[in-house]
Each structure stands twice: as C-alpha cells, then as structure tokens.
C-alpha cells in the first residue's frame, strides 16, 4: 500500500537527533584537539573522566528513574532530590567518620541513607501516586533541611582510607575516580540494557499498561528504580567526599547539570531513548567542554550557557518527534 513519508520537519528532527549528537561530539573533540594544548594527552583525558565521575554517577541514577518512569519531562520519571541526596549522604559519612565509627558502619550507614531517600521517593510516587516532579521536589527540600541540621551549613572536613584511595588511587595511570565512573557505567549498562530487569523496566516506563499485561509488577519496578537512584546518590557522595576531602555545602547546585546530562544522553541512543551508555557519552561531552574551556582559558561559565542551549535543542527535537506519533 501507498504510504507517505513522515513530514519534513520530523525527518529533520530525527536526523538531527540520530546523527547530529555523535557528530557534534566528535567535532568538539576535534576542535579542542587542534586548539587546546595537551588536550589529547592521556593524563588530561584521564582527568576528564575523573572530573566527570560525580556528575556521571548522579546522572546514571536519574537515567534509571527516567527509564522506569517514562521520558516525558513533566509526567515521566524524575528525581530532583539526587544532588541533595549526595549532600546528605556525604554529611552522614563525614559526621560518622569524624565521630570515630568504623569504616564498615560509616559506609553502610551512608549507603542506607541513600537507599532510604530513594525508598521515600519511590513510595510517594508509587503508592501515593504523586507526579515524580512534585514528589522529589518535596523530598529535595526535606533532605536539604536534614543536611543543614547535620552540618549546620558548614564544611565537614574528613579523611579515611577509603577517601584516600578514591582521591589518590591510580591504576595503570588512570585515577580511581575514572575507574569508578567507567566501572559503574558499564555495570549499570549491562543491568539496564542487557538484563531482563532492564528490558522490563523500559517496558514499564514506556507503556505501563503493556508491561502490566505482560505480567510485570509495574509498581515494584518503579519503586526499585528509585532505590537504585538513591544508591547512585550515595556512591556519588563518596566520590564527592574524596574529591573535596569532606562534605561540602551547596551540593544541590549539581542538580541542573545532572538533569541536563540525563536528558542530553537521550540523543546518543539510536532509538532516542534514555540509556546508560547515552548518559556516559553525555557526561563526557560536558566534561570535555568544561576541560577544553579551561585549557583555552575561556571562562567555564560559558559551559552553563552551552549546556542550556543543548537541553533546549534536545527537548525541542524530541517533542517534535513525539508530535509525529
């Protein structure tokens, strides 16, 4: 039968999304390689990976929640409390460590804190049926409050074997943070893109009714995606504590970059879906931008502007795609 090609505007949007992102990525690398001194040196590349680790791990958490809740920016999955969760977890770890608790206790309590935040988010979203945007906005405020109570809005310097290992460790010339970022990324990519759990989580996020009809316990899956996100928050807290030698204030400011990276990651997937591999690329893209600008002595504030422009492009293009369906 005679079928019509999709309208011009949507074909352009699709082409832009599918081909444009990797091209832009390579283009940026090429420009920096040609103009910025030492950009392509192993040391610098490893540095970018290490600097990207905190944002990257947080963005993994957000990506998982978006996969399980659907990628609609307003009604889909979203975890705005992730960056604040990092702040709280780092504060918990620094306080316990400074109070003389053992490594196991401090680490376990930190991870449990992250999971608890995830559990609260998940419970509110799944059982109270609140839109994730509002639910996690509320928990963001709650967590910020808890962090303030704990730290009284000061920096809590701390040091431990774990933090030293994370900040100073180096294998094969690659810093520990870079290993953690890549390792976590690959592990989560396997879990979400190649396991039964991951595939079903995609089904839950995209078309819950279909998932339910296929016998998948939709609510548990969504709930669990928030737990995973909480664990990512705790993991990022260790990386941040290692990077800054303690808990810091104002970690909530990472939120916008994390959201930007997670949504930017969508364009690095051939099916234009959120994915861990896409998020890895998006994290590195932002990392390289920031790094290249530093090497070229351009104010890194420009990176914010570029991030903003990228989000706008991606969201506009993907909503154009959605309109075609």
């Amino acid at each position: 039968m005679h079928t019509l090609p999709p309208p011009f505007k949507q074909r352009i949007a699709l082409l832009f999304l599918r081909r444009g992102a990797p091209l832009a990525f390579l283009l940026i690398l090429a420009v920096f390689a040609l103009t910025a001194p030492n950009f392509l040196s192993i040391g610098n590349l490893a540095n970018v990976f290490a600097q990207s680790a905190i944002l990257g791990v947080l963005a993994f958490g957000l990506t998982i929640v978006i996969i399980g809740g659907g990628s609609n920016v307003v009604t889909g999955g979203l975890d705005l409390s992730l960056a604040s969760n990092l702040g709280l977890c780092a504060a918990v770890y620094a306080s316990l460590n400074n109070a003389g608790y053992g490594a196991t206790t401090s680490i376990a309590a930190t991870v449990l804190t992250g999971m608890a935040v995830g559990a609260v988010n998940g419970a509110v979203v799944v059982w109270l049926g609140l839109p994730p945007l509002l639910a996690t906005l509320a928990s963001l405020n709650l967590i910020n409050g808890l962090e303030l109570v704990l730290t009284e809005n000061t920096v809590l310097p701390t040091s431990s074997v774990l933090l030293d290992l994370l900040s100073g460790g180096n294998w094969l010339g690659v810093p520990a943070l870079a290993w953690i970022f890549t390792g976590t990324g690959l592990l989560l990519a396997l879990l979400l893109q190649h396991s039964r759990f991951g595939l079903r989580l995609y089904a839950v996020g995209e078309y819950a009714e279909a998932a339910r009809a296929a016998g998948i316990p939709v609510r548990s899956y969504v709930f669990f995606s928030y737990i995973l996100s909480g664990i990512c928050g705790a993991l990022a807290a260790f990386l941040s504590a290692a990077w800054f030698s303690g808990s810091t204030t104002g970690s909530g400011e990472l939120l916008l970059s994390v959201v930007a990276i997670a949504f930017l990651g969508v364009v690095f997937s051939p099916r234009v879906l959120p994915s861990i591999t896409g998020t890895i690329f998006a994290t590195l893209l932002v990392g390289f931008l920031m790094n290249g600008f530093q090497l070229l002595n351009i104010s890194s504030f420009w990176v914010n502007g570029i991030q903003g422009a990228l989000i706008l492009l991606v969201v506009a293009a993907s909503s154009m795609l959605r309109a075609s369906k």
Partner: peptide, 14 residues
C-alpha cells in the same frame, strides 16, 4: 499493548 520503541523480538518476548 506493545511498547513503541521496542523491537519486534523484545516486544514478542516481553
């Protein structure tokens, strides 16, 4: 009741 972004194989065996 099939997720739109799935391949035929993924949807069939979901």
């Amino acid at each position: 009741l099939l997720p739109a972004s799935f391949t035929v194989g993924e949807a069939l065996f979901l």
